[in-house]
Design a protein around this nucleic acid. Structure first.
Length: 483
DNA sequence: TGTCCACTGGAAGGGAGGGCTT
DNA sequence: AAGCCCTCCCTTCCAGTGGACA
């Protein structure tokens, strides 16, 4: 019998090599614990592997928690979307005009992250294409039969009508300029357009000609459409919403999806009235609704009776705190399952969910910090140094002074204070810094800045960067503090 | 009540880099 | 090769901000 403590849950576990099921189990008062050989399940598992081959065998044969993890990913479109009946009906009632051969109104879809906007639009889009015939460039996973685990056959070819529909899904977080959008759209109609180099009006001509080559209805879904506006203004939206007047055969309808309701207020009034001909608002899910969603998905993703009763309510409660984000709830449940599986646990328990919550947040933060450009890292490191050596209020001017020193030491170009101010705003938006604009009367208007993550995390992540490492012994001089 | 401070944030534009056309 | 275009990152300029202080 071997005794150890799980590193994450701090639970005492035992391992009996002579038992049939070579699994870890909780310690009881009757257990006679003779040895303590490892500090964690991972350490133990690693130490006792005779070879990599054995390791894979062990992992494959281990008692699996999951039936099919893929059903817990947000890219999966389920057959039934719980608590979105009204939104589906409203969207379908607008798009039904396409079945009659008419052009559907442009639609603006608004809702917070993880409220099911994208999945509902893709779901209705797929349904419409199946009904009318046409193509769907929606990048969804194929509908999978829950019993067989195989993709369901696509019956759309059987229902062709006069005006075929092409559904195109574009994520404007990636395709965020007029040029990129038009070049991406042209690609869908078989035109190859260089990544850069052409004048925009030329791409527009190529796109509209390829689009108009045959009679069809094209429904373009612009997800995160606010990103397109932020970068390229409303020119591209204006052109797209007016394109029908340039077309003879094809017709275009736009569905704009955004989680920023205010963005539409900044649009040109003509674009606003055109894009928002119809509006659908997706309310956030509450905790019971999230529980229903998780229950449905867990039935097809996990093996029977592997989820402790408190796990799903806890995932739902955590996600409900974050404006009812179903994506977050699914991520939590999947990660909790993965942690349980890695620990060779027989069940997913509440502590696994809590660990999953911390791990997801830590992973997000470390990924963001690691990929920051050097200048932003230096600004972040300046805030860290100020918090460490000069506790008290930190304002933009303080950060700029330390940043200049660090840049000088590293022989890097020094950005202007204006630019540094923008980078501080970006770090604030990422949640790495907290920056609040405050007025200090005759002492001016500035930002009060603090770290948004723990100093330990900042230190360990930034001091791993070979450039930042060179200034890790720097101590800010007292005169760099303005207040 | 007017002045002042230390910025913020919008706008315009420079210039480097990458790519296309002629 | 020259000219043109787009994108990105950055600078420069400047009006605006709002609370403390004289």
């Amino acid at each position: 019998m071997i005794h150890l403590t799980d590193k994450d849950t701090k639970m005492p576990l035992k391992y009996d090599e002579n038992s049939k099921n070579k699994n870890f189990s909780e310690v009881t008062d009757n257990d006679d614990l003779q040895y303590t050989i490892a500090s964690s399940v991972e350490d133990f598992n690693f130490n006792k592997q005779a070879s990599l081959d054995d390791l894979f065998d062990e992992l494959l044969l281990s008692n699996s928690i999951f039936k099919n993890k893929e059903f817990l990913r947000h890219t999966y479109t389920p057959e039934i979307l719980p608590h979105r009946k009204n939104e589906i009906q409203k969207l379908a009632s607008i798009l039904v005009s396409a079945v009659k051969g008419e052009i559907p109104s442009n639609i603006f879809v608004y809702g917070k992250t993880g409220t099911g906007k994208t999945v509902v639009v893709k779901y209705v889009g797929n349904g419409l294409v199946k009904k009318v015939g046409g193509k769907a460039f929606l990048k969804t996973s194929p509908t999978i039969d829950c019993n067989t685990g195989l993709p369901k056959p696509d019956l759309s070819a059987n229902l062709k009508m006069n005006m075929p529909i092409t559904f195109i899904y574009i994520n404007c977080e990636v395709v965020d300029t007029q040029y990129r959008l038009l070049s991406k759209l042209s690609e869908y109609f078989g035109q190859s357009v260089p990544l850069t180099g052409w004048p925009t009006d030329k791409i527009y001509d190529v796109f509209s000609q390829s689009l108009d080559s045959e009679k069809k209805l094209v429904i373009i879904i612009l997800d995160e459409v606010d990103q397109l506006f932020k970068k390229g203004g409303d020119d591209v939206l204006y052109n797209l919403t007016r394109i029908n007047s340039d077309l003879e055969n094809a017709k275009v309808s736009i569905i704009g999806i955004s989680n920023d309701l205010k963005f539409i207020e900044f649009l040109d009034p003509r674009v606003r009235s055109s894009l928002g001909e119809e509006e659908i608002i997706f309310p956030p899910y509450d905790a019971p609704q999230l529980m229903d969603i998780l229950e449905d998905r867990s039935k097809i993703s996990f093996n029977d009776s592997v989820i402790n009763p408190g796990v799903i309510p806890l995932c739902a409660a955590f996600a409900a705190q974050e404006h009812g984000d179903a994506r977050r709830a699914l991520d939590l449940l999947r990660t909790a399952g993965e942690i349980a599986e890695r620990q060779n646990a027989k069940k997913v328990m509440e502590p696994h969910v809590r660990i999953a919550k911390d791990r997801i947040e830590q992973d997000r933060v470390s990924e963001v910090i690691k990929t920051l450009p050097t200048q932003s890292k230096l600004i972040l490191y300046s805030v860290y140094l100020l918090e460490k050596y000069m506790p008290g209020e930190i304002i933009t001017g303080d950060v700029f002074n330390i940043y200049k020193d660090l840049s000088n030491i590293l022989k890097l170009d020094i950005l202007t204070q204006r630019r540094v101010s923008d980078l501080i705003s970006e770090l604030d938006m990422l949640g790495i810094l907290n920056a609040k604009v405050v007025s200090k009367g005759r002492y001016g208007r500035t930002r009060e800045i603090s770290l948004g993550v723990t100093p330990t995390q900042i230190k360990s992540l930034l001091e791993n960067d070979f450039k930042i490492k060179k200034v890790s012994s720097y101590v800010p001089p007292i005169q760099h503090k303005l207040v």
